[in-house]
Amino acid sequence: MIPAPFDYVRPGSLDEAVTALADAGEDAKVLAGGQSLLPLLRLRLAYPSTLVDIGRVPELKGVRDEGDHVFIGAMTTHDEVLHSDLVRAECPLVALATATVADPAVRHRGTFGGALAHADPAGDLPAVAVALDMRMVARSRDGEREIPAAGFFVDYLETALGPGEILAGVRVPKLGPGWGFHYEKFHRTAQAWAIVGVAAAVRRSNGTIEEARIGLTNMATRPLRAAAVEQAVRGLAVTDTAALRGAAAHAAENTDPPSDLHGGPDYRRHLAQVLTHRALMAAAAA
Protein backbone atom coordinates (compact mmCIF):
# COMPACT_ATOMS: atom_id res chain seq x y z
CA MET A 1 0.00 0.00 0.00
CA ILE A 2 0.96 3.57 -0.53
CA PRO A 3 1.20 6.50 1.89
CA ALA A 4 -0.92 9.59 1.38
CA PRO A 5 1.06 12.67 0.35
CA PHE A 6 2.86 14.76 2.97
CA ASP A 7 5.38 17.53 3.10
CA TYR A 8 8.87 16.66 4.14
CA VAL A 9 11.61 18.53 5.90
CA ARG A 10 14.99 17.24 6.87
CA PRO A 11 16.66 19.49 9.42
CA GLY A 12 20.39 19.30 9.91
CA SER A 13 20.46 20.20 13.59
CA LEU A 14 18.31 19.83 16.65
CA ASP A 15 17.54 23.55 16.67
CA GLU A 16 16.40 23.36 13.09
CA ALA A 17 14.37 20.28 13.91
CA VAL A 18 12.38 21.81 16.74
CA THR A 19 11.81 24.94 14.68
CA ALA A 20 10.63 22.89 11.75
CA LEU A 21 8.31 20.88 13.94
CA ALA A 22 6.82 23.98 15.51
CA ASP A 23 6.39 25.63 12.13
CA ALA A 24 4.76 22.60 10.60
CA GLY A 25 1.78 22.73 12.92
CA GLU A 26 -0.07 20.16 14.91
CA ASP A 27 -0.59 17.61 12.14
CA ALA A 28 3.15 17.25 11.65
CA LYS A 29 4.91 14.12 12.79
CA VAL A 30 8.49 13.36 13.62
CA LEU A 31 10.05 10.69 11.43
CA ALA A 32 12.73 8.80 13.29
CA GLY A 33 13.70 5.40 11.86
CA GLY A 34 10.22 4.99 10.46
CA GLN A 35 9.86 1.32 11.29
CA SER A 36 6.58 1.85 13.11
CA LEU A 37 5.49 4.95 11.25
CA LEU A 38 5.97 3.74 7.70
CA PRO A 39 3.63 0.77 8.02
CA LEU A 40 1.03 3.13 9.54
CA LEU A 41 1.48 5.53 6.64
CA ARG A 42 1.28 2.75 4.09
CA LEU A 43 -1.92 1.40 5.60
CA ARG A 44 -3.20 5.00 5.64
CA LEU A 45 -3.82 4.81 9.35
CA ALA A 46 -1.93 8.10 9.74
CA TYR A 47 -2.17 11.25 7.62
CA PRO A 48 0.55 13.64 8.79
CA SER A 49 0.70 16.96 6.99
CA THR A 50 4.46 17.11 7.32
CA LEU A 51 7.14 14.67 8.29
CA VAL A 52 10.10 16.16 10.10
CA ASP A 53 12.86 13.68 9.37
CA ILE A 54 15.32 13.79 12.25
CA GLY A 55 17.50 11.10 10.69
CA ARG A 56 20.31 13.54 9.91
CA VAL A 57 20.46 15.43 13.19
CA PRO A 58 23.91 14.68 14.57
CA GLU A 59 23.10 15.62 18.17
CA LEU A 60 20.52 12.87 18.36
CA LYS A 61 22.90 10.03 17.64
CA GLY A 62 25.14 7.96 19.78
CA VAL A 63 25.66 6.70 23.30
CA ARG A 64 27.63 8.71 25.88
CA ASP A 65 28.82 8.11 29.43
CA GLU A 66 27.55 10.99 31.51
CA GLY A 67 28.73 9.93 34.96
CA ASP A 68 25.84 8.48 36.94
CA HIS A 69 23.92 7.70 33.80
CA VAL A 70 24.30 6.74 30.19
CA PHE A 71 22.83 9.03 27.57
CA ILE A 72 21.37 7.29 24.57
CA GLY A 73 20.58 9.63 21.70
CA ALA A 74 17.08 9.19 20.38
CA MET A 75 18.25 8.41 16.87
CA THR A 76 20.64 5.70 17.96
CA THR A 77 19.44 2.62 16.12
CA HIS A 78 18.55 -0.58 17.92
CA ASP A 79 21.49 -2.15 16.16
CA GLU A 80 23.85 0.52 17.46
CA VAL A 81 22.45 0.12 20.97
CA LEU A 82 23.08 -3.62 20.75
CA HIS A 83 26.65 -3.06 19.64
CA SER A 84 27.42 -0.39 22.23
CA ASP A 85 29.94 -1.62 24.80
CA LEU A 86 28.76 1.11 27.11
CA VAL A 87 25.14 -0.05 26.96
CA ARG A 88 26.12 -3.65 27.40
CA ALA A 89 28.29 -2.85 30.40
CA GLU A 90 26.13 -0.26 32.13
CA CYS A 91 22.59 -0.99 30.98
CA PRO A 92 22.45 -4.69 30.15
CA LEU A 93 18.68 -4.78 30.46
CA VAL A 94 18.43 -2.31 27.60
CA ALA A 95 20.60 -4.57 25.46
CA LEU A 96 18.65 -7.69 26.43
CA ALA A 97 15.31 -6.17 25.52
CA THR A 98 16.59 -4.46 22.39
CA ALA A 99 17.82 -7.81 21.08
CA THR A 100 14.20 -9.00 21.04
CA VAL A 101 12.84 -6.02 19.10
CA ALA A 102 11.53 -7.02 15.66
CA ASP A 103 14.23 -8.46 13.39
CA PRO A 104 17.74 -7.48 12.26
CA ALA A 105 16.69 -5.38 9.28
CA VAL A 106 14.18 -3.45 11.33
CA ARG A 107 16.78 -2.97 14.06
CA HIS A 108 19.09 -1.35 11.53
CA ARG A 109 16.56 1.41 10.90
CA GLY A 110 14.45 1.52 14.04
CA THR A 111 15.69 3.79 16.78
CA PHE A 112 15.77 3.74 20.54
CA GLY A 113 14.00 7.08 20.82
CA GLY A 114 11.54 6.26 18.10
CA ALA A 115 10.44 3.08 19.83
CA LEU A 116 9.92 4.93 23.12
CA ALA A 117 8.17 7.93 21.59
CA HIS A 118 5.86 5.60 19.67
CA ALA A 119 4.71 4.39 23.12
CA ASP A 120 3.27 1.11 22.00
CA PRO A 121 2.54 -0.80 25.22
CA ALA A 122 3.36 -4.01 23.34
CA GLY A 123 6.80 -2.65 22.50
CA ASP A 124 9.68 -4.07 24.50
CA LEU A 125 11.55 -0.92 25.43
CA PRO A 126 8.88 1.08 27.27
CA ALA A 127 8.72 -1.52 30.05
CA VAL A 128 12.49 -1.33 30.39
CA ALA A 129 12.27 2.45 30.53
CA VAL A 130 9.88 2.40 33.46
CA ALA A 131 11.74 -0.43 35.21
CA LEU A 132 14.99 1.50 35.09
CA ASP A 133 13.44 4.90 35.79
CA MET A 134 14.92 6.33 32.65
CA ARG A 135 14.70 10.08 32.24
CA MET A 136 13.44 11.23 28.88
CA VAL A 137 14.99 14.37 27.48
CA ALA A 138 12.49 16.42 25.51
CA ARG A 139 13.55 19.37 23.35
CA SER A 140 11.40 22.09 21.94
CA ARG A 141 11.90 25.64 20.79
CA ASP A 142 11.48 26.63 24.41
CA GLY A 143 14.40 24.52 25.55
CA GLU A 144 14.94 21.19 27.18
CA ARG A 145 13.01 19.41 29.89
CA GLU A 146 13.38 16.01 31.51
CA ILE A 147 10.40 13.73 31.88
CA PRO A 148 10.65 10.68 34.16
CA ALA A 149 9.69 7.47 32.38
CA ALA A 150 6.88 6.94 34.88
CA GLY A 151 5.18 10.06 33.57
CA PHE A 152 6.24 9.78 29.94
CA PHE A 153 3.93 7.00 28.83
CA VAL A 154 0.44 8.41 29.07
CA ASP A 155 -1.74 6.03 27.13
CA TYR A 156 -1.81 3.82 24.06
CA LEU A 157 0.57 5.43 21.54
CA GLU A 158 0.49 8.60 23.62
CA THR A 159 3.33 10.25 25.51
CA ALA A 160 3.80 13.35 27.61
CA LEU A 161 5.66 15.01 24.74
CA GLY A 162 3.92 18.25 23.88
CA PRO A 163 3.32 19.53 20.38
CA GLY A 164 6.59 20.86 19.13
CA GLU A 165 8.61 18.63 21.43
CA ILE A 166 11.07 16.05 20.18
CA LEU A 167 12.47 13.25 22.27
CA ALA A 168 16.17 14.05 22.02
CA GLY A 169 17.52 11.22 24.08
CA VAL A 170 17.23 9.22 27.23
CA ARG A 171 19.24 9.19 30.42
CA VAL A 172 19.57 5.67 31.68
CA PRO A 173 20.68 5.57 35.31
CA LYS A 174 23.61 3.31 36.07
CA LEU A 175 22.54 0.84 38.68
CA GLY A 176 25.94 -0.10 40.04
CA PRO A 177 27.18 -3.49 41.18
CA GLY A 178 25.17 -6.47 42.36
CA TRP A 179 22.39 -6.30 39.78
CA GLY A 180 21.20 -9.07 37.56
CA PHE A 181 18.91 -8.56 34.56
CA HIS A 182 16.51 -10.40 32.37
CA TYR A 183 13.89 -9.62 29.75
CA GLU A 184 11.28 -12.35 29.38
CA LYS A 185 9.27 -11.96 26.19
CA PHE A 186 6.39 -14.21 25.39
CA HIS A 187 5.13 -14.15 21.82
CA ARG A 188 3.64 -16.50 19.32
CA THR A 189 6.17 -16.18 16.55
CA ALA A 190 9.63 -14.72 16.55
CA GLN A 191 8.36 -11.64 14.74
CA ALA A 192 5.19 -11.15 16.71
CA TRP A 193 4.65 -8.54 19.36
CA ALA A 194 4.87 -9.62 22.98
CA ILE A 195 1.63 -10.99 24.38
CA VAL A 196 3.26 -10.12 27.70
CA GLY A 197 6.83 -9.20 28.50
CA VAL A 198 8.62 -8.76 31.79
CA ALA A 199 11.73 -6.65 32.30
CA ALA A 200 13.42 -7.51 35.55
CA ALA A 201 16.39 -6.06 37.40
CA VAL A 202 17.37 -7.62 40.69
CA ARG A 203 20.02 -6.49 43.21
CA ARG A 204 21.43 -9.31 45.23
CA SER A 205 23.59 -9.43 48.27
CA ASN A 206 24.75 -12.58 50.00
CA GLY A 207 22.20 -14.70 48.20
CA THR A 208 19.29 -12.46 49.09
CA ILE A 209 17.30 -10.13 46.89
CA GLU A 210 17.66 -6.62 48.25
CA GLU A 211 15.84 -4.73 45.56
CA ALA A 212 13.97 -5.43 42.35
CA ARG A 213 12.62 -3.37 39.52
CA ILE A 214 10.06 -4.95 37.29
CA GLY A 215 8.48 -3.50 34.18
CA LEU A 216 5.55 -5.10 32.39
CA THR A 217 5.02 -5.06 28.63
CA ASN A 218 1.49 -5.09 27.25
CA MET A 219 -0.37 -5.34 30.56
CA ALA A 220 -2.18 -2.02 30.12
CA THR A 221 -2.37 0.80 27.63
CA ARG A 222 1.04 1.86 28.89
CA PRO A 223 4.03 0.07 30.40
CA LEU A 224 3.66 -0.67 34.10
CA ARG A 225 5.85 -1.29 37.11
CA ALA A 226 4.93 -4.37 39.11
CA ALA A 227 5.23 -2.53 42.39
CA ALA A 228 3.62 -5.21 44.53
CA VAL A 229 6.08 -7.79 43.29
CA GLU A 230 8.99 -5.45 43.90
CA GLN A 231 7.80 -5.13 47.49
CA ALA A 232 7.16 -8.81 48.01
CA VAL A 233 10.45 -9.96 46.64
CA ARG A 234 12.66 -8.02 49.01
CA GLY A 235 14.63 -10.22 51.32
CA LEU A 236 13.87 -13.47 49.56
CA ALA A 237 16.65 -15.93 48.90
CA VAL A 238 17.60 -15.90 45.21
CA THR A 239 17.24 -19.66 45.05
CA ASP A 240 13.90 -19.88 46.85
CA THR A 241 11.79 -20.78 43.82
CA ALA A 242 8.58 -21.18 45.74
CA ALA A 243 8.90 -17.88 47.54
CA LEU A 244 9.74 -16.09 44.33
CA ARG A 245 6.72 -17.66 42.71
CA GLY A 246 4.63 -16.35 45.57
CA ALA A 247 6.02 -12.88 45.11
CA ALA A 248 5.47 -13.03 41.37
CA ALA A 249 1.83 -13.87 41.96
CA HIS A 250 1.33 -10.16 42.63
CA ALA A 251 2.37 -9.30 39.07
CA ALA A 252 -1.15 -8.87 37.78
CA GLU A 253 -2.21 -6.47 40.48
CA ASN A 254 -3.30 -3.08 39.20
CA THR A 255 -2.93 -4.13 35.60
CA ASP A 256 -5.46 -3.61 32.86
CA PRO A 257 -4.37 -5.93 30.07
CA PRO A 258 -5.82 -5.72 26.58
CA SER A 259 -7.78 -8.41 24.82
CA ASP A 260 -6.83 -9.32 21.28
CA LEU A 261 -6.34 -12.27 18.95
CA HIS A 262 -3.46 -13.55 21.03
CA GLY A 263 -4.95 -13.50 24.47
CA GLY A 264 -7.68 -12.36 26.78
CA PRO A 265 -7.06 -10.32 29.93
CA ASP A 266 -7.23 -13.30 32.28
CA TYR A 267 -4.64 -15.18 30.26
CA ARG A 268 -2.38 -12.16 30.22
CA ARG A 269 -2.73 -11.75 34.00
CA HIS A 270 -1.78 -15.36 34.41
CA LEU A 271 1.14 -14.99 32.02
CA ALA A 272 2.36 -11.92 33.87
CA GLN A 273 2.69 -13.98 37.02
CA VAL A 274 4.42 -16.93 35.39
CA LEU A 275 6.74 -14.77 33.33
CA THR A 276 7.56 -12.48 36.24
CA HIS A 277 8.59 -15.53 38.23
CA ARG A 278 10.78 -16.70 35.38
CA ALA A 279 12.24 -13.26 34.86
CA LEU A 280 13.03 -12.95 38.55
CA MET A 281 14.70 -16.36 38.64
CA ALA A 282 16.75 -15.57 35.57
CA ALA A 283 17.72 -12.09 36.73
CA ALA A 284 18.63 -13.38 40.16
CA ALA A 285 20.85 -16.00 38.57
CA ALA A 286 22.38 -13.70 35.97
Binding site: P39, T189, A190, Q191, L261
Partner: peptide, 16 residues
Protein backbone atom coordinates in the same frame (compact mmCIF):
# COMPACT_ATOMS: atom_id res chain seq x y z
CA UNK B 1 -11.52 -9.43 8.86
CA UNK B 2 -9.16 -8.81 11.75
CA UNK B 3 -6.16 -10.56 10.23
CA UNK B 4 -5.52 -8.27 7.30
CA UNK B 5 -1.74 -8.04 7.65
CA UNK B 6 1.13 -10.39 8.29
CA UNK B 7 1.43 -8.81 11.70
CA UNK B 8 -1.96 -10.32 12.58
CA UNK B 9 -2.08 -13.42 10.41
CA UNK B 10 0.98 -15.17 11.76
CA UNK B 11 3.12 -17.18 9.39
CA UNK B 12 5.97 -19.20 10.82
CA UNK B 13 9.49 -17.93 10.21
CA UNK B 14 12.69 -19.94 10.28
CA UNK B 15 12.96 -19.16 13.98
CA UNK B 16 9.58 -20.77 14.66
Amino acid sequence: LLTTTMADYLLPSAAD
